[in-house]
């Protein structure tokens, strides 16, 4: 079992696309800290990279990888090993590869140049996003025969979680500005892993003061250690559920 995930992870790291991905992250992560004298600005820029680029690339790349390794999956399935081991290996291998790239490219410079609580939260949020979007990609891929269709669906997920969801939230807040909607808004955040990641990190920066001004409920929840841990817990659920859905399908389907 470990051998399988290890082999897949190695295979992934040999892939040019993931290498390029790793280099881009490293270029952004190391470059920004070496060029920018204000680490407060750098961490916000890296937050944007983590929220926008990371989910997109992990999702697309995991999908492409799944379809390109159908042969490999076949080869594994005719060996005396369980299907669950195979899908687990693929998941751990893919997620591990992305997490590794992220840690080296973004995590390491953060720890070296700006060792703060905000950096720590950004690293935790980033690696959870890697795992979450790998899971979503596998979930979609195991249910779809067609690669192009899967890519389309993944893109929709990405656009929805990074842009559309928060657009809708803003629209609702404009419409219902007269009503006490903070509590439902807090709950609605948990249905979007990208939002959770963002708020976790923003709460650790100077901008938290602004939330105190007008988002007391958010401040109270995310400002406390307990709230942060709950939020991270919800992200872990987000990381695990799509994977288990894909696992369920992977075990039941024909090849």
């Amino acid at each position: 079992m470990n051998k399988i995930s290890f082999t897949i992870a190695l295979d992934l790291l040999k892939n040019k696309a993931i290498l390029i991905f790793g280099f881009i992250l490293a270029f952004l992560g190391w470059g920004m800290f070496l060029l920018e004298s204000q680490p407060e600005k750098t961490i916000l820029a890296l937050l944007q990279v983590t929220l926008i680029i990371l989910p997109l690339v992990t999702g697309i790349f995991a999908t492409v990888y799944y379809y390109n390794s159908r042969e490999f999956i076949h080869l594994l399935l005719i060996q005396p090993i369980r299907r669950s081991s195979v899908i687990r290996g693929i998941f751990i291998g893919l997620a591990g590869g992305f997490v590794f790239s992220f840690l080296v490219g973004i995590g390491l410079p953060l720890l070296l140049f700006y060792p703060t609580l905000a950096s720590l939260y950004l690293i935790i949020a980033g690696l959870l996003l890697c795992i979450i979007f790998t899971g979503i990609a596998l979930w979609v891929s195991t249910h779809q025969q067609d690669k192009a269709r899967s890519m389309g669906i993944i893109l929709l997920f990405w656009v929805f979680f990074t842009f559309v969801y928060e657009g809708i939230q803003l629209l609702i807040m404009y419409q219902l500005a007269e009503y006490p909607i903070e509590q439902p808004m807090l709950w609605s955040v948990f249905f979007n892993p990208v939002s959770i990641a963002r708020i976790l990190v923003v709460m650790q920066t100077e901008a938290a003061a602004l939330l105190g001004l007008s988002g007391a409920i958010f401040q109270d929840f995310f400002g406390s250690l307990k709230g942060s841990l709950i939020a991270i817990g919800v992200m872990v659920v987000w990381a695990v559920v799509p994977y288990f859905l894909s696992r369920f399908k992977f075990i039941k389907r024909d090849f």
């Binding site: 295979d11 390794s69 159908r70 042969e71 076949h74 080869l75 005719i78 005396p80």
Partner: peptide, 29 residues
């Protein structure tokens, strides 16, 4: 899945991971 230990299979189309070397394939299996 243990029963597959005694089965050798040659598929219709040989489906192998593209990046893997022949030697790695045998080692992996």
């Amino acid at each position: 899945p243990q029963y597959r230990e005694i089965i050798g299979y040659m598929p219709q189309l040989s489906l192998f991971p593209q990046n893997m070397k022949v030697q790695e394939l045998f080692a992996l299996i």
